[in-house]
Design a protein around this nucleic acid. Structure first.
Length: 95
DNA sequence: GTGATGACGGAAA
DNA sequence: CTTTCCGCCATCA
């Protein structure tokens, strides 16, 4: 599902089940930057905190880290707090 | 219609 | 392992 518009991206973000995350590149292959632009200024209309960088680092701030941690997302105790992508990342095709 | 912008990604050093 | 650089494409002014 190659999302090309903001609405499609927001829809995809809503499909992310609690405890898992998707990367910007997964939501918009070829234009990962646009994913961030789409999420910029949405509010809590969608679970934006479940969208992280491909390497597992967060994009917004510790605000996001707290929410993910609350959902039971596996975090690695590293200097820059980052997620364990091989477990937290949700494969494409799945809701 | 054109130009600039960006919650990124991947490669290179 | 870390840091730096370029490019991508949809939106906005």
């Amino acid at each position: 599902m190659k999302d090309r518009s903001v609405e499609d991206i927001l829809a995809a973000v809503r499909q992310i089940p609690p405890g898992f995350v998707r990367t910007y590149g997964d939501l918009c292959p070829g234009a990962p930057r646009f994913t961030g632009t789409a999420l910029r200024g949405i509010g809590d209309r969608v679970p934006w905190w479940r969208v992280v960088h491909a390497d597992g680092t967060l994009a917004v701030g510790e605000e996001q880290r707290r929410r993910l941690e609350a959902e039971g997302v596996p975090f690695l105790n590293a200097d820059p707090p980052r997620l364990d992508m091989r477990t937290a990342r949700l494969p494409d095709g799945l809701p």
